[in-house]
Write a protein that binds this DNA or RNA. Structure first.
Lengths: 150, 150
DNA sequence: ATCCTATATTTGTACATACAAATGTTGTTT
DNA sequence: AAACAACATTTGTATGTACAAATATAGGAT
């Protein structure tokens, strides 16, 4: 639905305000969509994101800093997010040997299995959502969002 | 920056995944930008959003439901968000007379003063962010985001 | 009028997040 | 080498948010 109608915004709101409202609103909406798809697996979008990052490390350990830099939503307490993944046995954490201030975080076999399983469901949601956008529209959307953040 | 570089994503990720990642990432980024602009006023983006909704009511009271429907980020406890605004004396809340299940929430004079003041700062942030996008680019962005949510 | 269902909000509780201070480690300066 | 600043993470604490159950009111159906 059109953003103005959706949130019952005044009709003469300038386009730039509409656009920013739309980015925020659509971001939240998308997050909620993903969250409810993840719900049955008892995992949050944030946790899913971190698991995916760790899977992308291809066996290499990641420090907290590396994880944080790559997270979609930066947060001020990644330690505790990793704690949650630890109790689920999805990751391991130990002091980094070459720089003992850092910590080596790796995904476990069971973490890999979990994310592979969960990814299928998320993939389905993602293709569903984007199916009414053409490839060139996706490219344009990416271009405009990148430009916005410059 | 380009979303793939930003989050150090694998290069052969399909465009639709990039787009959704970009929507989420840009939404969070924008929220953080606004949040830090609001910080000096000791008010959260959510609270700011509700005050703006109430200002838009032009004196008419809003029920919790009305507020929730118009919020950028839907949340499951609007009561407590309004509690916060109450303790700041930015709003009033009383039982609705025509339907006593509902509550009438109104913005106070001091709430109006606050939001007028704060809006100036947020406006500045918003124009800053969008200044490198042309009007037709903003229109396209809005169109694509609306289409995504369909 | 009584009963039942739907609506609107609040409350209890568990969990998540933000922020600053504390801890431990490393590199640099003197 | 001692002292100090910079870095990486953790911990304490306050606040925010999610979810379900509880409360209260309204609008039918019998």
């Amino acid at each position: 639905m059109i953003i103005g109608k959706q949130l019952k915004i005044s009709k003469q709101i300038p386009e730039y305000k509409k656009a920013l409202l739309n980015v925020l609103y659509t971001g939240n909406w998308l997050n909620d969509e993903v969250a409810s798809a993840l719900k049955p697996f008892d995992i949050s979008p944030q946790q899913f994101n971190v698991l995916r990052i760790l899977r992308g490390m291809k066996g290499e350990p990641a420090s907290l800093q590396v994880i944080q830099d790559r997270m979609i939503s930066k947060m001020s307490n990644t330690t505790r997010l990793v704690d949650k993944l630890l109790t689920k046995d999805f990751v391991t954490r130990k002091q980094c040997e070459s720089n003992r201030r850092k910590v080596d975080i790796c995904i476990t076999k069971s973490g890999l299995d979990a994310i592979d399983e969960i990814s299928k469901v998320v993939d389905r949601v993602e293709t569903n959502i984007t199916e009414n956008l053409q490839e060139n529209e996706l490219l344009t959307l990416n271009k405009l969002l990148n430009k916005l953040r410059e």
